[in-house]
């Protein structure tokens, strides 16, 4: 967390989505999407179901490659980079349906999140060189700091699958932060949370941004997204229909027609 982040000029985008298209079979999930994320901001990605938000997420985190167009992270194309390598370069993500390692403890989950930042191998672990032990010690300290940060340090040794759902979300966010990301992708972090938990989540996301991490947020909860985002991008049926500050987007006719106007009952 408190590691010195490499200095990036704040006026060039951290991530650029450049006319990206992606189809599955005959379905055009995304067509010609372009926008960019400025460093140390929270960008909200919204849109009705089937708008292509999760697809875009999977493209950014390297699970699929775009059919055409390019995604540049730190001005370099991510096309040839595998998802586990992207983590090492600073892109971390959470999942819509929380995918923790359920049989492992909370602390162990966070430690796996820190995997890409450590390097001791099989031989090192077998022989236990001093630097391996030191690295492990450091990793545990970092993990505990993160658990403190999300408020779960008392449950470090609980089996993660046994935790209540809201806490599992927090563990997942802490696990993503453990890779020391510069860009954090949150896929519907408020889904399944109650109102109090959602409010706390909003604070947490702000705190994450204040530490210098850029956040891309896909969310159905409108009030949360509008409240915490610095910038909003609206997708509908695979196309970008609007972007701007929350206030500007809320006033946009196209958005109201496509999304807000249809009754806002889209939460599932």
């Amino acid at each position: 967390m408190n590691a010195p982040l490499k200095k990036i000029p704040t006026d060039t985008p951290l991530l650029e989505i450049d006319s990206v298209s992606k189809a599955f079979g005959g379905v055009q999930a995304l067509s010609d999407i372009s926008f960019s994320l400025m460093p140390k901001t929270i960008t909200g990605l919204i849109g009705p179901n089937g708008a292509g938000k999760t697809t875009l997420f999977n493209l950014i985190s390297g699970i699929f490659a775009p059919d055409s167009g390019d995604i540049r992270y730190n001005s370099r194309s991510t096309r040839k980079i595998k998802s586990f390598q992207l983590v090492k370069q600073g892109i971390a993500r959470t999942f819509q349906n929380v995918e923790l390692f359920e049989t492992m403890t909370v602390l162990e989950n966070i430690l796996v999140g820190h995997h890409a930042q450590t390097r001791s191998g099989m031989w090192g672990s077998m022989i236990r060189f001093p630097w391996v032990l030191a690295e492990e010690q450091r990793a545990r300290e970092i993990a505990m700091t993160l658990l403190d940060f999300v408020g779960l340090s008392d449950h470090a040794h609980a089996i993660s699958g046994d935790l209540p759902f809201g806490w599992q979300r927090l563990v997942e966010i802490a696990r993503a932060l453990a890779s020391r990301p510069r860009l954090l992708l949150l896929d519907e972090p408020a889904a399944g949370l109650n109102i109090v938990e959602t409010l706390q989540l909003g604070d947490l996301i702000r705190k994450i941004r204040d530490q210098g991490i850029t956040v891309l947020l896909v969310e159905h909860d409108m009030s949360l997204t509008m409240e915490i985002s610095d910038w909003i991008v609206v997708l509908d049926q695979g196309k970008k229909i609007s972007q701007g500050t929350p206030r500007a987007v809320q006033a946009d006719e196209a958005v109201i027609a496509a999304y807000l106007g249809t009754g806002k009952k889209d939460e599932s």
Binding site: S61, I63, K82, S83, F84, Q85, V87, K88, A92, R93, F95, E99, L100, F101, E102, T103, M104, E108, L111, V112, G113, H114, H115, A116, Q117, T118, S120, G121, M122, G124, S125, M126, R128, V132, E136, A139, R175, A176, S179
Partner: peptide, 30 residues
């Protein structure tokens, strides 16, 4: 030797693969 591997970051990553291979890759495990 095996116990030490299991208790190390390698062992944790292996168990992570067991619990969810895609999630493991998504958090940076090769």
């Amino acid at each position: 030797a095996c116990q030490r591997i299991i208790d190390s970051r390698i062992g944790r990553a292996l168990r992570a693969i067991h619990d969810g291979e895609n999630a493991a890759a998504a958090v940076g495990v090769n």
